[in-house]
Computed example of a mutant assay.
Amino acid sequence: MDVDLARTFLEIVSTRSFVRAAERLNVAQTTVSARIRTLEDQLGRSLFVRNKGGATLTPAGEQLLRYAPTFVQLWERVRHQVAVPEGHQSVLAIGSEISLWQPLLLDWVLWMRRNIPQTALRVHVDVPQDLIDQVASGLVDAAVMYAPPHRPGLKVDLLLDEKLVLVTTADAASPDSETSFVGMEWGPHFSQDFASSFPGAPHPGVSFNLGPLALSYLLAAGGSGYFRMRAVEQLVQQGRLRLVPGQPQFSYPIHVVYSSDLDDALIQPAIAGLRLVAGGRRAPLPPDGLSA
C-alpha cells in the first residue's frame, strides 16, 4: 500500500470529510477521491459511505483503521532512520510542547550529545495537538508533553509532577491583590483548581497561552502570576522574582510519550537520560533566554 494512500485514508477518518481532508493535505478533492478509489481497488472493498453528513467507515474501513496508523508510523520511521548522518549510528527525533522546551528539552538534548553522541538528533517543538500527531505518525519518536491524550500504539509515562507556583516582582502579591495579575492558560485542570482556590479573583487584564511570553511580560511590566517552578527558580535565586508565601501551589504533571514499537535499545537510554535531567540536572539559561 502506498503511504500517500494510507495518509489520505487517515485524514478522511480524522475529518470525516473528503473536502476537509483535501484541504489538510493541500491537494485537490479529485486527488483524494482518486486515491481512495485506488486503495479500494487494491483491497477489493469499499472503505467509506459518503452522504450529506460526511464520510463514515464501512466494516472494511474499520478493519483498515486498525493497521493504517502503524503502516504510516513504520514508513516515517524508516524514512528518517535510513537518513543517518555521517559519523552516527542512528537517528532519534525528540520534541516537546512549546512551553516545555526550556529548560527540559534543552537539557535533554545536551545530555544526549554528551552521553550518546553516536545518535543523531532531530529536535521538534510544536503545539500539543500537532506534536501528538507527529508522534503518532512516526515523525517524532518521543516527546515531552503535558497531559498527552492516550492513543493506540503510544506509551505515556509520567516524567515528573512539577508545581505551578505564584511569583511576583513585588514584595507580596496574590491574584486578588492590587498588584497586576498576569493570567496564563495552563489547561482545564489548572483553571478549575485556580477558581476553587481564588473564588473572588477578577479576570486578569492580560493573559497568555505561551509561558515564555507571559514571563517576559511579567518581568517587563511587573506583577504576579503562576509559572512552573523549574522555569522561575533561577530568576528567584537572582532576586528578579519572589515566591509569594502562603499561596497554593498546583500540580503540573509532565509526561514523555513515545511509540510502543520503537527499538528499546534506541529509546530506553534516551528516556533514562530524560529522567536524569528531569530529576534536577540543569543547563544554565541562555543570556537572553526565558522559559515558563
Rank of each mutant, 00 (worst) to 15 (best):
V123I: 14
L164D: 05
M145C: 09
N115I: 02
A143L: 00
I98P: 00
K155R: 13
G153S: 04
V78A: 13
T119R: 09
W111R: 01
P117R: 09
D126Q: 14
Q129I: 07
R122Q: 12
D141S: 05
A93I: 08
Q118I: 08
K163V: 08
L106P: 00
L139D: 03
L160D: 10
L158I: 10
S96H: 06
V144R: 00
L92N: 02
I116Y: 14
L92Q: 04
T168W: 04
L110W: 11
R114S: 14
A93Y: 07
L105C: 02
G153N: 06
L131H: 08
P128R: 12
A136F: 10
K163Y: 00
L104N: 03
P148F: 09
Q81V: 02
A136L: 06
M112A: 10
T119G: 00
V167N: 03
V156E: 04
L110N: 14
R79S: 12
A83N: 13
V123W: 00
H124L: 10
V91M: 00
V125A: 05
V123F: 03
T119K: 03
R151P: 04
V140H: 05
V84M: 03
L166N: 06
G138F: 02
P149N: 04
K155D: 09
W101M: 13
I98H: 11
V82K: 11
L166V: 09
H150N: 11
R79C: 05
L92G: 03
S137R: 12
V156Y: 06
D126T: 06
V82C: 05
D107E: 15
L139N: 10
R151L: 14
V127R: 13
G138P: 08
S96Y: 03
Q102D: 12
Q102M: 13
H80C: 01
E97K: 07
S96A: 15
V144L: 11
D107V: 06
P117Q: 10
L139V: 11
A143W: 03
L164K: 01
G87T: 00
K155H: 13
D157V: 11
G87I: 05
A142I: 06
W111P: 00
R79V: 12
S96W: 01
E162K: 00
L158D: 06
P117S: 08
K155P: 02
E97A: 08
T168Y: 02
E162R: 07
V84P: 01
I98M: 12
V167S: 05
A136Q: 07
V84W: 04
D161A: 15
E86C: 01
I132W: 07
L164A: 09
Y146G: 06
H88V: 05
A83T: 13
D161N: 15
P103L: 11
Q81Y: 11
T168H: 03
A93L: 03
P148Q: 04
E97R: 08
L154N: 06
K163C: 09
L92C: 03
V125G: 08
G138E: 00
L159H: 02
L110F: 09
Q118G: 05
G95A: 02
D107I: 00
P85S: 09
Q89M: 14
L160Q: 10
H124D: 10
P85E: 08
P148C: 08
Q129A: 15
V135K: 07
V125C: 05
R79K: 14
L110G: 11
R113H: 04
I98E: 12
D107G: 15
A147Q: 15
L166E: 00
L92I: 14
G95K: 00
H124I: 11
R151Q: 13
S137I: 06
